[in-house]
């Protein structure tokens, strides 16, 4: 029972990171139907920004987190402006390939710029471990969980309660009709990228603090796992992405807990295939018919 509880804690803290990343995928997909493969690398850039701001500018943790969100939001907008906007009217496959290209550019660019070595993240917060019914929970695990939940709630608020959120929802339903009623398409899309990238930046700093190790290729695997999470939850759906993230985190932990660590990635992808076969639109997705 204790072990089960402990594994649940492990799964939840891993899952909240995937959830934060999955949100970015799902929002961008919901708006412009683009799978932004560079999203995992924005998360890496967030972690590096955290690293340098803590070391060079002596920020405290909260400032590092917030500044990383701002920097990543700006980066997200810049990437959208230079890489995806010129391709707005090209076939979707072109934008997809460009996204993979941007991902490679960021990974290898950072490797060339700062070196490919793994480096240790400055410990901005001392680790305190709480014991509760025989379960060990560290303050950082709690912090990750709480920050993730807060940001997700904030995102939900922005999408459901603000004017910009309304514009985002309108664009995702029908971009042309949205323009007809006076919504600025470019602004809305930039805003979506900014929001998603800010989430990724926050996840990067949190991961840096939690695992204490960052490197330029750190975004690759989590990026793909988060993408799977977004698909499982129903790509385009915000609550779906959060749920998908937690499902993947707990699934991965569970597989390792029963001693099948060699198959942990295989199981995640297997579940992806099963979900796509049984519920092609994901858990929260709507099965919309494509207009021809």
């Amino acid at each position: 029972m204790q072990t089960f509880g402990q594994q649940l804690v492990n799964g939840l803290s891993l899952g909240s990171i995937y959830a934060l990343l999955a949100l970015g995928y799902t929002m961008v997909y919901g708006i412009i139907k683009l799978i932004n493969f560079a999203h995992g690398d924005i998360y890496m850039l967030g972690a590096f920004w955290g690293y340098y701001s803590l070391r060079a500018f002596h920020f405290n943790f909260l400032m590092a987190l917030c500044s990383a969100m701002v920097v990543c939001a700006v980066l997200g907008v810049v990437i959208e402006y230079f890489a995806y906007r010129p391709l707005r009217h090209s076939p979707r496959i072109t934008a997809l390939i460009t996204a993979i290209g941007v991902s490679f550019l960021l990974e290898n660019g950072m490797s060339a710029l700062v070196g490919a070595n793994a480096r240790s993240f400055p410990q901005a917060l001392p680790v305190v471990t709480y014991h509760w019914l025989g379960i060990r929970v560290s303050n950082i695990q709690l912090l990750i969980l709480i920050t993730a939940c807060l940001l997700m709630a904030l995102l939900e608020l922005i999408i459901k309660r603000t004017k910009m959120g309304k514009a985002m929802r309108a664009v995702s339903v029908d971009p042309e009709a949205a323009q007809l009623v006076g919504i600025n398409l470019n602004h809305t899309i930039s805003f979506t990228f900014a929001l998603g990238s800010a989430m990724a930046g926050a996840a990067g700093v949190l991961i840096g603090l939690y695992y204490n190790s960052i490197d330029p290729l750190m975004g690759m695997t989590p990026g793909i796992k988060a993408f799977v999470a977004a698909v499982i939850g129903g790509i385009g759906s915000v609550p779906g992405a959060s749920l998908g993230g937690f499902i993947i985190g707990i699934l991965e932990t569970g597989v390792q807990a029963v001693g099948l660590s060699a198959y942990k990635d295989a199981v995640v992808y297997f579940v992806l295939i099963v979900i796509l076969l049984v519920m092609p639109a994901g858990i929260f997705g709507h099965n919309r018919r494509e207009k021809v």
Binding site: S13, I207, Y211, S261, A262
Partner: peptide
């Protein structure tokens, strides 16, 4: 087992 680039070993270690 684990893979190069993995960051979370909590599950294996707890078990």
């Amino acid at each position: 087992t684990f893979q190069e680039g993995d960051k979370d070993f909590n599950a294996i270690l707890t078990s």
